[in-house]
Design a protein around this nucleic acid. Structure first.
Lengths: 110, 110
DNA sequence: CGGTATCCAAACCGATACTG
DNA sequence: CAGTATCGGTTTGGATACCG
């Protein structure tokens, strides 16, 4: 998801990518990159130097996927507030209904 | 995902939707529908008759999301074979490398 | 019919320690 | 630097039983 969108702009090294994305553990990033590589979305270029230098780029298919991801993220982002509102409305109604069943309206405080 | 795309065509009742999608447990469908309703993607219309009759439709936002989902599913579907191929190639290479490390090529059977 | 409640095994994932 | 290996807590989701 975020790996593919990040790699749209330029290639990244492992730790660099980890910092860029943020909140992703080493393990998850390694796992994700392996899957993406295996499935043909990402290309892994390992230069056998010391210290190791590995950078990741998107393949053509990966670029296509990343662009779609980016568009989808944008769409979701644009609708976030609508979702938050819908959620609040839904929760408010449900809270009112629960209050009515648990404590019948006999008298209100003040 | 599949709930939204199914509901693009017409409204569905609970069990009907379950059959349509296939491989989804009651629990998961109920959970999914509640989330979608809460977030404003789906509208739930419960007619208080016996036996109960509840049908689900998409909201405007849900329709938009469903259309995007459908497009994405189509895209993924179109690339499935490419992914399968990439995966096979990757696994083949890895298997060869593993074989080389575990059993050095001294002699081959026949 | 359209769910909810409960139990439980499997999968997920972060933290930590270690390696080439 | 770029990972792998392992442990353990959390989450997920199916199966089953029950309810209005």
């Amino acid at each position: 998801m975020l790996v593919l969108t990040a790699l749209l702009d330029r290639s990244y090294r492992f730790s660099e990518l980890r910092r860029e994305i943020g909140g992703v553990s080493e393990k998850m990033l390694a796992q994700t990159l392996q899957t993406l590589e295996r499935d043909g979305f990402v290309h892994r270029n390992a230069r056998p130097v010391i210290p190791p230098h590995v950078d990741y780029t998107v393949t053509d298919m990966g670029r296509e996927a990343g662009e779609r991801m980016r568009a989808m993220i944008q769409w979701v982002d644009d609708r976030m507030s609508a979702v938050v509102d819908a959620r609040a409305a839904y929760d408010r109604v449900r809270a009112e209904r629960d209050a009515a069943t648990e404590a019948p309206p006999v008298a209100r405080t003040r």
